[in-house]
């Protein structure tokens, strides 16, 4: 049984600057809910972008779902993003001119599915995140918590083994944040999806199976 995320000595140095990330090594198993806690500027986003195949490490290796990632092969990176990874952002990043339903269907335009299948999958996921009645609303007509639920449904739409969340509750109040965390936790358990959640708040550690701390670019388990 291989790990879902296997990071070995990931390092990132931006040109002419101090390392943004140094020697990150860790593994995350299938269906695990992991939080990564760190102050802003500690390299959390850099690590998350590398795990999400949006950025490449200066050195080190990464395997996702048992497959080593070749960061030089951009076509392959696209297909990894399509099949293995779902993203949840702090700013929700829903497309403003698309309805909730259409936002959830959006990734299936690239990872192509027929319209009927798209509608079915997206409808089911919106129901699961508790937005059954708001499918036809535009993001501007939804609350922050609701928008983030739509984003979670969108991240799940290709049924990826890994969801990467970058401070998903950073723009939400305490109560809503708790709801979002417990929703992610439930979904992770139901679907055996690995959640890798970056946060700077320790209090949500309770939802996690494990927590890492990132200090000055180095990952340590708590």
């Amino acid at each position: 049984m291989h790990a879902t995320i296997e990071a070995d000595n990931l390092r990132k140095v931006y040109r002419g600057s101090i390392p943004a990330l140094g020697e990150a090594s860790f593994t995350v198993g299938k269906g695990e809910f992991v939080t990564l806690i760190g102050r802003s500027g500690s390299g959390k986003s850099t690590l998350l972008n590398i795990l999400g195949c949006l950025d490449s490490p200066s050195s080190g290796t990464l395997s996702l779902d048992g497959v080593p990632v070749d960061f030089r092969d951009s076509a392959r990176l696209v297909s990894i993003r399509r099949q293995k990874i779902g993203f949840v952002f702090q700013q929700f990043n829903l497309l403003p001119h698309l309805t909730a339903q259409e936002n959830v269907e959006y990734p299936m335009l690239f990872n192509y599915r027929e319209p009927e299948e798209r509608a079915r999958t997206a409808g089911g996921l919106l129901e699961r995140v508790g937005l059954d009645g708001r499918k036809d609303h535009l993001p501007a007509e939804l609350s922050g918590g609701e928008q983030q639920r739509v984003a979670i449904a969108r991240a799940l739409v290709s049924d990826p083994p890994i969801i990467l969340a970058d401070e998903p509750t950073g723009n939400l109040d305490q109560k809503t944040s708790g709801e979002i965390f417990s929703l992610m936790q439930e979904i992770g358990r139901e679907r055996k999806t690995t959640f890798f959640v970056v946060t700077h708040e320790r209090e949500f550690g309770e939802y996690a199976d494990r927590s890492f701390r990132l200090v000055d670019g180095t990952v340590t388990a708590i």
Partner: peptide, 16 residues
């Protein structure tokens, strides 16, 4: 810009 970046994160290729 942001929308395009998000689309890429969500699986859009450069060709898309």
């Amino acid at each position: 810009t942001r929308e395009i970046g998000v689309s890429m994160a969500l699986g859009a290729s450069q060709g898309d």
